[in-house]
Amino acid sequence: MSLVTLLPFIVLIGAMFLMTRSAKKKQQAAAQMRSDMQPGTGVRTIGGMYATVKEVHDDMVLLEVAPGVHAVYAKNAIGAVLDDDEYNRIVHGDDALKADDPIVPDDASSLTGTADAADSPADAKIDLGKKPEADGAEPKDGKADGDTGAK
């Protein structure tokens, strides 16, 4: 066999090696994150629930999902360990603006060019390029209202 015929197989094996290596690194990082959990830390489960860690055991954690409400979860069910600022922002709604945070308008005024939604009349008609038909006149397709043409 020549090197040219073996080259696709070598490339395929190399790609598989790199993918499995990357997946193994991600698994190790997740295991390290879960083992570094401490009581009082905010976490997000793989189901999307935010909670505070109360106790950490070998294969499970006790989470406080609401004041006075505790639940037992497997360590593998912890999707992310959050830092205090992020947890408070998400759970408690602490949205204190920082000096470098951009201010985004809560309406589409920046897209339309109008300063305020009150500047444009709410009942303004939009021209769709259609001409209104005279009362009693037949539509252009030759069918009366409700006539589907099927018999």
Rank of each mutant, 00 (worst) to 15 (best):
L3A: 13
T5C: 03
L6A: 12
L6Y: 11
L7S: 11
L7N: 10
P8L: 05
L12D: 12
L12M: 15
M16D: 09
M16G: 14
L18F: 14
R21F: 03
Q27V: 04
Q28H: 10
Q28E: 15
Q28S: 13
A29T: 07
A30P: 00
A31M: 10
Q32H: 15
Q32W: 05
M33A: 14
M33I: 03
R34G: 01
S35G: 05
D36P: 00
Q38E: 12
P39G: 12
P39E: 07
T41G: 06
T41Y: 08
T41F: 03
T41E: 11
T45A: 07
I46L: 14
I46R: 14
G47I: 08
Y50R: 06
Y50A: 02
V53M: 02
H57M: 07
H57Y: 11
D58F: 08
D59T: 12
M60P: 00
M60W: 14
V61H: 01
V61N: 02
E64C: 04
P67W: 00
P67I: 05
G68W: 04
V72K: 09
V72T: 07
V72I: 13
Y73D: 06
A74H: 11
K75F: 03
N76P: 02
A77E: 15
A80P: 00
A80E: 09
V81F: 00
L82S: 01
D83T: 02
D84A: 13
D85S: 12
I90Y: 07
G93C: 00
K98R: 12
D100M: 05
S109F: 03
G113H: 10
G113K: 06
A115F: 02
A117Y: 10
A118S: 15
A118H: 09
D119T: 05
P121N: 08
D123Y: 03
D123V: 04
K125Q: 12
I126S: 07
I126K: 09
I126E: 08
K130M: 09
K130H: 14
P132M: 10
P132H: 10
E133Q: 13
A134G: 07
D135P: 04
D135V: 02
G136Q: 05
A137C: 03
K140H: 09
G142E: 14
K143A: 10
A144T: 06
D145C: 09
D145Q: 13
T148Q: 08
G149Y: 14
G149R: 10
A150C: 03
K151L: 10
